[in-house]
């Protein structure tokens, strides 16, 4: 059974069609990126999966169970870290668990240690740098009890160097825990470097324009980013995205 199966999902806002017959299947433990120019329905897809919006048509199934318009089935990491300013880092990363039952501070401490945040467990979010806040936000998503994690352009607000650091870190943590991840981004390199599969979206109404299986084995490391093959893939996806010359 697929972990997430979206079939013929459509959504429009007062006549403005954002999503038309969108299909997506994600297997258990897969890392899938959705790539598309900003202003396409990327975030809408997340809002539909997260249950904030109800689709006009189609179905969203998680482990074979329909979750149309139901909240609380996914773990989420937004664009901004969105840590609660009055909670310390340990309390913050436990928030996802707190919302759905019991907390596991030991495991949280363990993960904070792996993220290099063990000295900051008692610190408040405003004492942390942007990258550290995002790491805490990702740990919060990992610790949440839901089996699927949705990441909504989590690194878009970071500077180039921090972003690369964060991508490497995310990759290492993910390769260890292998949770199912749906990742939204507008950065081709990021999608290629991180994911198993890339879905390229078209302009409004968003439809799957192309789909790529990323051939790189894991664990991946930074040197991959500068290989000719990687650049070739980047070009290919870029053309798929912009509708440039075909190969």
């Amino acid at each position: 059974m697929s972990h997430l199966q979206i079939t013929k999902l459509s959504k429009q806002f007062s006549g403005n069609v954002v999503l038309r017959e969108f299909d997506l299947t994600i297997e258990e433990g897969e890392f899938v990126s959705i790539l598309g120019p900003s202003g396409t329905g990327k975030s809408t897809i997340f809002h539909l999966i997260g249950g904030i919006l109800a689709p006009d048509n189609g179905s969203i199934q998680l482990m074979g169970k329909e979750i149309n318009g139901k909240r609380g089935f996914i773990s989420y990491m937004p664009q901004t870290p969105s840590l609660l300013p009055w909670k310390n880092i340990l309390q913050n990363v436990l928030l996802g668990q707190e919302l759905h039952g019991k907390k596991d501070p030991e495991r949280a401490m363990d993960m904070l240690k792996k993220a290099g945040l063990e000295a900051y467990e008692k610190a408040f979010p405003n004492e942390l740098s942007g990258g550290m806040k995002q790491r805490a936000a990702f740990i919060r998503a990992l610790l949440s009890p839901q089996s699927m994690i949705c990441l909504d352009e989590p690194f878009s607000a970071l500077d180039e160097l921090t972003r690369l650091e964060m991508q490497k870190w995310l990759l290492s943590i993910w390769e260890e825990y292998r949770r199912t991840v749906l990742f939204i981004t507008h950065n081709i390199e990021e999608a290629l470097f991180l994911s198993d599969r890339i879905i390229v979206l078209s302009e409004k109404p968003a439809k799957v324009k192309a789909e790529f299986n990323v051939p790189y084995l894991r664990p991946r490391n930074e040197s991959l980013l500068l290989t000719d093959d990687f650049l070739k893939w980047k070009r290919k996806i870029h053309y798929a995205l912009t509708g440039g010359p075909n190969e």
Binding site: G50, R71, Y76, P78, S82, L95, L99, Q146
Partner: peptide
Amino acid sequence: ELKHYMIMAGATRGQLFWK
């Protein structure tokens, strides 16, 4: 943005208020 996170993470109306 905090509200959005809480709602996406599945917080109930009560949790949203108290937390």
